[in-house]
Structures are given as C-alpha cells and as structure tokens.
C-alpha cells in the first residue's frame, strides 16, 4: 500500500488523481459518508486519464463515478461500466491509516473488489 495524501485533503463527493510507483494512475474518491474508493484513472472510452475528475453519485443505490468526457457511469465497487458491459476500470485497494489515504498497487490490485 502506498500513501498518497491526507484523508482531509479529499473533498467529500469528489476525487483526486494519484501517480503510483509503478507509473499507473489511480482515481481516489471520498463519498459524502466518508467511504473511500479507488479505481484506475484511465477512461477506457477516450484513453485520457480523467476519471478522478468525474462526478460521483448513485445509480439505483449503487455508488458510481461518471466519466467527465462522455459521461458513462462506472460502479465504484467493481469498476464495471454500467452503460457498456464490455468496458471496466481496474479496482484498487484503499484504506486510511493514521489519517493518511493509502492505495494498493501491483499484486494487491483488485483486492478490494
């Protein structure tokens, strides 16, 4: 697990991007109930690293992030794209330790799913 920032740094209801040691990018979201989710930052539809800048909300109760470019919704828990099942985001492990947000990389990938 890699530390990326202080928990308070993330505004409830928005996300941040983190550059991980292996060069991949994670999008980390804090929801209004202070739960945290981390998925890959790469939008599979456009190839741009922008997922962290999407709006979060829910689809029928399922927490989602919408890609800011073409607005597809992705389930934050599974990374699955709800508008096109052939696309998905990777899911990263995420935890708060001593007030610090940490994200899992490499082998821990998908551990949270």
């Amino acid at each position: 697990m890699e530390p990326i920032c202080a928990f308070d740094r993330i505004i409830p209801g928005r996300g941040v991007a983190a550059l991980l040691a292996d060069g991949t990018q994670a999008a980390v979201f804090r929801l209004h109930d202070d739960s945290l989710f981390a998925v890959s930052n790469l939008d599979p539809f456009t190839g741009a690293n922008v997922i962290s800048r999407g709006i979060v909300g829910d689809r029928a109760g399922e927490p989602v992030v919408m890609s800011p470019l073409l607005k597809q919704a992705f389930a934050l828990k599974t990374g699955e794209c709800l508008d096109d099942p052939s696309a998905s985001l990777d899911v990263y492990a995420v935890e708060v330790l001593g007030g610090e947000v940490r994200v899992g990389v490499g082998a821990e990938l998908k551990a949270a799913a």
Binding site: P3, I4, C5, R9, I10, I11, V16, A17, A18, L19, G23, Q25, V28, L42, A48, N49
Partner: peptide, 18 residues
C-alpha cells in the same frame, strides 16, 4: 487552488500520458 494539481501526491508532475 489546491484542486488544480495533476496528482495529489505529485502536484507539479505533468500527466505523462498527455
């Protein structure tokens, strides 16, 4: 201003994929 960073853990590193 804090929000206008490329990466929360590397604020001034340009996104290498662009």
């Amino acid at each position: 201003l804090q929000r206008f960073v490329s990466f929360v853990n590397a604020p001034e590193t340009p996104d290498p994929s662009i």
